[in-house]
Design a protein around this nucleic acid. Structure first.
Lengths: 237, 237
DNA sequence: GAGTGGTCTAGACCACATG
DNA sequence: ATGTGGTCTAGACCACTCT
């Protein structure tokens, strides 16, 4: 049996050492790091190798560079929280309630920025826990046009989530998200089998193409505590 | 007046061209990009320059590399939502309600993983809208020990948010976040001047040091629609 | 003027995936 | 066997900052 040659690259060593100094507090917020040339001398390596290590720290957001001045330790940002919005929670089953073309109401028309006579696809689904209790109610309004393959795939993916994603322009849209607490309306309470006014988490998403065109709007109501959103902020070692 | 020499670097050109092809759909999800050597020929540049452009795409998550095989277009992740958790919303004023040492209840003890006799700092504050309506209620439990400078700065920053952040070990902790909808309890309803049971957004954060030690726990109740959380998912051009 | 980071070159050797 | 990406070198020139 031959020993695998898994030696750590030098730039990774530089990266790790500097990162440890940042976490230790040997390097504090705003501190100036050693210059590239200093690091070259310290590690007896070429400048590009040093830069590779620094670049790794920079793209993780731990440091930033001021050209012609030096590299500095970044100020951590704890106000940006990354939330994992799980489409299919564990131990839950999602089934379709309805899918059809509708004339949307004024609010949806306004959000999607479409004229009065525009027809959209309305797609609703309910997610049940293992015990059979409904825990989430989803309503999506999708601007269906053949010219927008991403929407087609959205529908196909929504209806048959087990299908692999079809070929599509990657990153062709993003979503704007808003998270609120609302009391269950009569209609929603009926679906979720809860009392009217029960606190629900409402996640609204607007699907927007890179050219600015709005192509979809989704509402996700979830009963508590099932539908709690989990996330993290800051840098996790 | 001399013209500024702001020519675009070659690697940035390569980056931009490939990125456009990804957004256009000329390159779809899972597609193989041209090899480094091919790009070298196409652009008549050295390999390191090509790699710089590819590295930029990679660190943005648009592509990934399979060593010895090639670079591929990534599958966009729309389930990770980045939420901006604004501490001091615009047009709002935050003022202190209380700050003192307490013996926390069982729930807080459990979350912070501390013994029964452990004392913590409890810090509460209320945020008012311009009209004077209370819109948010914050309660923080902080494990105060001189050995943990990040906690000291947390307190100082919380009490005097206008102060610049003191020198501290950067990235020494992260937070676990949970977002839920709850009905206002009697105590919370009193502070927020709303009826009991009114739907509130509750953001809970646990502050955790890189070594795993839990050093703080915060609850943030907000009335709707003021305290709605906004975020985005996907890649925004 | 000395030092810094930003860009770029033209090589090199390696381990490995694929056909 | 060929091609790929991963790592690394030893130079170079530039524009700029700082003192």
């Amino acid at each position: 049996m031959k020993k695998k040659n898994n030696r750590e690259p030098i730039y990774a060593l530089i990266y790790t050492n500097l990162r440890n100094q940042i976490f230790d507090g040997q390097l504090s917020v705003g501190d100036l790091l050693p210059s590239e040339n200093q690091l070259c001398s310290n590690y007896k390596v070429s400048r590009e190798t040093v830069r590779r290590g620094l670049k790794a720290l920079e793209s993780e957001g731990l440091i930033y560079s001021r050209p012609k001045v030096g590299y500095f330790v970044s100020l951590p940002n704890y106000s940006d929280v990354t939330v994992s919005f799980t489409v299919n929670p564990a131990n839950c089953r999602t089934h379709y309630k309805d899918i059809h073309a509708v004339m949307p109401d004024a609010e949806v028309r306004n959000i999607l920025n479409i004229p009065e006579d525009r027809i959209v696809i309305e797609l609703s689904q309910v997610t049940d826990s293992v015990e059979g209790t409904p825990v989430a109610y989803d309503i999506k309004y999708i601007l269906y046009e053949q010219a927008y393959p991403s929407v087609e795939s959205e529908i196909r993916f929504a209806v048959f989530p087990e299908l692999t994603l079809p070929k599509m322009a990657a990153f062709s849209y993003y979503t704007d998200v808003q998270i609120r607490a609302v009391g269950a309306s009569e209609a929603v309470a009926k679906v979720l089998e809860c009392r009217i006014g029960e606190p629900l988490l409402l996640v609204e998403r607007i699907y927007i193409q890179q050219n600015g065109k709005r192509i979809g709007y989704a509402l996700h109501y979830s009963r508590q505590p099932y539908g709690a959103l989990k996330g993290t902020s800051g840098y996790r070692l």
